[in-house]
Design a protein around this nucleic acid. Sequence first.
RNA 1: GCCGUGGUGGCGGAAUGGUAGACGCUGCGGACUCAAAAUCCGCUUCUCGCAAGGGAGUGAGGGUUCAAGUCCCUCCCACGGCACCA
Length: 953
Amino acid sequence: MHKRYNHQEFEKKWQEKWKQDGTYNIGARDTSKEKEYVLVELPYPSGNLHIGHWYAFAVPDIYVRYKRMMGKQVLYPMGFDAFGLPAENAAIKRNINPRVWTKSNIEYMRNQLDSMGVAFSWDKTTSTIDPEYYKWTQWMFTQFFENNIAYRGEGVVNWCPGCHTVIANEQVLLDGTCERSGDMIEKKRMPQWMLRITDFADALIDDLDTLGDWPEHIKEAQRQWIGRSEGAEIDFKLNVNGASSTVNSTITVFTTRPDTLFGATYLVLAPEHPFLEQNRNSIENWKEVATYVQTAKQKSEIERGDNTKEKTGVKLEAITATNPANGEEIPVYIADYVLAGYGTGAIMAVPGHDERDNEFAKKFRLPIKRVVEPLFIQTDGGNAFRETDPVEPRDAVCVVVRNPADNTYLALEWKKDQMHGLVTGGIDDGEDLIEAARREVTEETGYKNLKVVRDQNFSIHCKFWHRVKEVNRHARFTYVFFELENNERKVVSESEQALHDSQWISENDLDSFFTVFEAKFAVTLLKNPEYIHTGNGLISHSGEFDGMDSEAAKIVITEKVGGRMTNTYRLRDWSIGRQRYWGVPIPIVYDPQGKAHIVPKEHLPWTLPEDVDFTPTGEPPLAKSQELKERTEHIFGAGWLPEVETMDTFVDSSWYFLRYLDNHNDEEFASKVRQQEWMQVDMYFGGAEHTTMHLLYSRFWQKALHKLGLTVHSEPYKMRINRGLILGPDGNKMSKSKGNVVDPDEQVKLVGADTVKMYLAFMGPYQGANYPFDLGGIAGIRRFLERVYGLEEHLVEVESKETTVLLHKTIKKVGSDITEFKFNTAISALMILMNQFEKNNLSMQSYQKFLLILAPFAPHISEELWHLTGQSSSIHIENFPNYDPSLVKDEVVTIGVQINGKHRGEITIAVNATETEALNSAKGNAELAARLARIVIKKVVYVPSRILNIIGE
RNA sequence: GCCGUGGUGGCGGAAUGGUAGACGCUGCGGACUCAAAAUCCGCUUCUCGCAAGGGAGUGAGGGUUCAAGUCCCUCCCACGGCACCA
């Protein structure tokens, strides 16, 4: 029966009891248990917990509690990431020190967190603003500086006028605004403290492959963000007025296609390229060039990034370059389609094989050379087709192979550059055609489920229809049909056809094609002069390299001209200096000559001075601190100056999960022993917005520490799950201005912490999706818990077998669902069980087991009811109940009955019933019998415990 | 444009290739009540039918299969990442 309860009566009570007993404290590593490190992103203490925090912390708590009950020692720590601009801005507004503001927020939020009733390991907490914490942040920085991972660099940086500080690339949104203030970012050239994350770019990409449990989409997002391109750097000699110039005589370009070097018909420099300033006197049209540079500077990032815009550029008069491959003198341009920040800021333009260069070349009437021949399919004679072959321009080739034995077909189509694979696949090396084709298509297209059929005439027959995605109704095909005879291809016919959109050739149509005409070979290729071949092929017009495979040619051509094979990355080094107050001071001092030195360990923490007016002016506030200045001179000597920038807060959060492990250690940030005990993080729940920020930074940080021998592991996280967002009841993102904010404190007061937590878990799978907070939905969960509260009225001495069976099935399902983060279906199973209990009563033993499996979801009410059954110790130190495998196995089963594939009824039969028994059972069903009487049974498909399908006519 | 994820009732969402829509919400009907709320019982994919019962149905179209939400192909749409990256 439904029974109201007052959550306020016992939720607080148990929270205090747990705290007092240290129920969730982790203590020392208990090696009798397996360890599990569950991590959630530590919050910024904004001063108020929002529903997103609940979703982030309380739902993973189900997982944590389950693992604890399964006998693991689970570390689930919580802390505060408390440096940063919001605190500083709030402090300015209130005219207090951000430390004071932040500390009071932490205290307040600590209470709010307690009201969740989550099993945090509070004895392992830390806060990034504690000097004992940032001492180590600083020490790590000094180690990085000593080992050339941190450096003072000069570069183009993102300046946020709203925040009065520089921010990192990752913190600039797509539209060029600041992720925090929303202001338009300005590009400034200034000295910057940088971390060499690019030195770790390869490791950051390659090691993703070792993270087998990570969701692929997260890994892919990181790969794209890092953006590795494999290519070569090639030097071009520059000539001024036709003569080889003495200064800056080379320009280095980066290219991914060194194999096309012979087709490079001009060079393009980014407008920011330093060559321009250095050679202004030699450039005859300097005025025009300077104007273009100026315009390019003023163009916003978005404008420049808009690749639909027509290409612009200016030729550098009196400057030419020499193509190192063929000695040709080629012109040099500047154009804003070349980016200063990528590669070397200069490119060799190959308009024959690059669409952007092609567009530019057409506009400026520059020569276009083709130096790579698209390579398609081999002919019977074994020669690859070349441009010179007399065929019409086509988009694709389709090869159909008919097996005359059973009149089935192999139909394969390849678009343009996909045909290359057929040649390298060794079709003509005596390998079975079908098998080779199957393998090639699988490799080339990624379509895996080709059907391979064996039959008596042919070793392997591949029954497969394939159309390449982009081939649409405008494409023209050549169809060539073969028959296979004793493994020999015999051409039957060839025909040309424009296929209508998404129309398949039916087998009947195919037959008519066979009669069209005879053909000698199976091929088509592109002779369209508009076609820019960007793929691989055979090298041509390149002297000694002609005929070489383009992939192989990359290396030898680079070698020949003295270039270097190298990678380049989209990722930039991480700029970490901030011109604001509320952060970790960069522990660097400058000697009177201006040389940077680290603050040695004995002077750490290098504390943040307090005697500072931190109103933002653009000048770093620390520069105004007398105390810091005196401290520096006192320790290092007269004339020494402190660094006055503070660190990006993403630095603080890049290693917090290590500090939790050893949060009171004065000697080390975390001892190797602790690391060995607890790392890696087994399960990291977090927000999708951190995929290319915190998640990448902290992986880098771990690798940098690892390189210096300071961490045991080079990857911090074994498994990562990105959760979604909780939206307002109207389906929009919660925001004060929309008035759709759901306040968790209010909800907790209204329906209790258990209900809020369970509702959040019930909305849908934890991974990925966003859900609106539905006030009706949460009432449903409350109703469920009230009925649970009333279950004791249904206690009986002996319960039915059916009830026991369902209990054990539910124990099994809840456990497996939790480990798959399907909390929603686990809760659904609990509800079904509860309904059964209410209808059919339950024994005390089952009641207690039910409370145990409910405990991870609703820790308070289960604890309360647990004690009401006479238990004196906490339910949260109990083990998760085992299910009895013999009870979970069904003896009888209800299966669907289909007649001709249509569902027509159900029968309930023994699990191990035979087909005859099943059929008889169906015949025993009046309705089914009536239907069966109307047909003649031709075939029966019976899958035990699944289906009975009767086919007849 | 490229890469990734997804598309199922009025809503959130369930379904190892085997009874589509579990569970919850909403809505409707009934019980209780002077009444309302709460609670309890029943119904709730659409459609034809008084009913018994029939038909359709998982973004669209095709394919494989005894059987497709699930596998394959093409297309459409939404969301996320990257994007003049050489």
